[in-house]
Amino acid sequence: MLRRTVLTGAAALLGLATLGRRGAAATGRFEITLTEEEWRARLSPAAYAVLREEDTERPFTSPLNDEKRAGAFHCAGCDLPAYASQAKYDSGTGWPSFWQALPDAVGTKEDNTLFTTRTEVHCRRCGGHFGHIFDDGPEPTGKRHCLNGVALRFQPA
């Protein structure tokens, strides 16, 4: 009986921890809202998993991690310019990293998954999940926007 109680409690906690995983992308409080079918038709399976289900791509798999040309990184879901190439830097983490977003391009929310509190960053127009913001970045902000490359599209200048 005790084992069943512990397992049931653990399953409930896991369910609560993952309840927010669909968070910003699923709420529909954004300028661009599409049905799940419309998003799936617009995005690759990997981009859908990251942007709409808050998944994470494997590190060192995105070609955007090595992108060094002048230009802008746009939301792969709605094409909103989100990050300038001038704010990109090599964090050594395996994901494209930036020290700041373009003005009025992103939103944030508290992410309490993985038994810690992090700051999730998403597209302010469609709610697509980009990644997380950490306090270990370079000056002038001290922030590291650690992003999934599949959530972005690079537009050369």
Rank of each mutant, 00 (worst) to 15 (best):
Arg125Thr: 15
Arg58Pro: 00
Ala25Asp: 15
Ser62Arg: 05
Ile133Leu: 05
Glu53Trp: 00
Ile32Pro: 00
Arg69Ser: 15
Phe130Trp: 13
Asn65Val: 14
Gln100Ala: 06
Lys143Met: 03
Ala101Thr: 00
Ala82Tyr: 03
Thr116Glu: 12
Gly131Asp: 06
Ala49Asn: 14
Leu43Val: 10
Thr56Cys: 02
Ala105Gln: 02
Gly137Asp: 10
Asp111Leu: 10
Phe60Met: 02
Thr35Gly: 14
Val50Cys: 12
Leu51Gly: 09
Gly107Phe: 01
Asn112Val: 13
Thr61Met: 10
Leu34Ser: 00
Cys146Gln: 02
Arg69Gln: 14
Val50Arg: 11
Glu53Tyr: 01
Asp90Leu: 03
Gly94Val: 05
Gly20Gln: 15
Trp95Asn: 10
Gly28Met: 02
Arg52Ser: 07
Pro59Val: 03
Ala72Asp: 14
Ile133Ala: 10
Gly128Asp: 12
Glu139Ile: 00
Phe98Arg: 07
Arg144Phe: 01
Ala24Lys: 11
Pro96Val: 12
Leu64Arg: 04
Gly127His: 11
Leu64Asn: 11
Arg40Val: 01
Gly23Tyr: 10
Ser44Thr: 15
Tyr83Ala: 06
Asp111Lys: 08
Leu13Ser: 00
Thr141Cys: 06
Gly20Glu: 14
Phe73Thr: 08
Arg69Asp: 15
Ala82Ile: 04
Leu102Asn: 04
Ala47Arg: 12
Ala76Lys: 11
Glu38Val: 04
Asp79Ala: 15
Ala151Tyr: 09
Glu53Pro: 03
Pro103Ile: 08
